[in-house]
Nucleic acid binder design. Sequence first.
DNA 1: TCTGGGGTCCTAGGACCC
DNA 2: TCTGGGGTCCTAGGACCC
Length: 423
Amino acid sequence: MDKIFALVDCNCFYVSCERVFNPSVRNKPVVVLSNNDGCAISRSQEAKAAGIAMGAPIFKCQDLVKKYGVEVFSANFVLYGDMSNRVMAVLGQFTPNLEVYSIDEAFLSLQGFEQLGLESYARKIRSSVYKQTGLPVSIGVAPTKTLAKVANHYAKDHPETQGTFCLMEEKDINHYLAKTQVREIWGIGKEKAIFLERNGIHNAFELKNAPDEWIKKYLTVVTLRTVWELRGISCLSLEEVSPNKKAIATTRTFGYEVSRMEEMEEAVAAYVSRSAEKLRRQKSLAGHIQVYVETNPFKDTPFYRNSAGMKINPPTAYTPHLIDIAKGLLKRIYREGLRYKACGVILMDFTAQTNEQEYLFDEKYQGSSRQRLMEVMDRYNRQSNSSKLFLAAEGLGKPWYMKQAHKSKRFTTRWDELLEVKI
DNA sequence: TCTGGGGTCCTAGGACCC
DNA sequence: TCTGGGGTCCTAGGACCC
């Protein structure tokens, strides 16, 4: 039986989340900023129309913000993560086969639902998500994931579709592929688009008909899969169980430029802690750790970036041990007198927690009591939705912490931040 | 003054081995 | 003067995604 994929994608997700709890910004231009209140990473239609580009540094848009009365929010990922879970729960009511692809997107298998009418089923999904979460979504339906993306874009950009679009017939598919630029295809980025256009391939229909050998030779098997998907041959299947991560990174820019070693150490310790929490959540041990630091790349002063990594043998998920190693790595790359703008910690080479090996000689990090300590910290912080329990190495004040001047409340995950309705 | 963060996969090239 | 060939593993970097 032929496959049928639906791609459900939330419209300007972060902005829409803010609008659910703040009706006063519903018909206004709205942007949500990246960490540290840096760039615009989510924009309402009105903000796009006002000329605020995706990823634009907000300080460069102050004129537009003032002129159009743009409402500006700091990123509130706790809120967005919780809203995302709610959307996914609604989608789960409509199919047993669901892949959560990102915080604001999911692929659904609609195989077996044809007799209900794909068009009307998609409309039902869309209205249910809106009714139960307050979030608007667009839905594209097609025989492959890549074509579902095409259909989804069309639904999003054309109001007459009312947010849903099915692309199931060969004739329709060819028609819409001819109207799709190669750069808009899922999997074709800037570099590949330039290469394709230089070789006379401008739209998705032309790419669909390009010779396999030529694609494979110059654009690797990855793009060949994309081409097959455009032909309606499904190469990318539904990944219903999300596999464990192969790398876990915590990297941040600072609220201000940091020079002192002690502050750098605190930041590294804090980022190790965040990474190790995620590591333990997926029940893994890290066999390699990488630390990097960098100065502000936008300044005239010479840019410095350096990283150091180390094998961890035997692998561990014990935060104090990881912090010790990370601090040692930091010492190797830290240069006195520089002003650092960011640093990061990356854990990788994971093994399963059940394979934990005992230390033969070094007893400092050994023993089940250490593991229990981590379990207790994780459980408490998770249940209280906070990071009240943390290691002193992270520092108390965290003066280097990112700026978040326009942050909304955690309406859905904190009792003390619930939405108040005044009558 | 102010410029995000977190992932995956693939390839090329070097080191090393027999 | 002439100086093999094939395999694996690791790392860095590119390209892409949201």
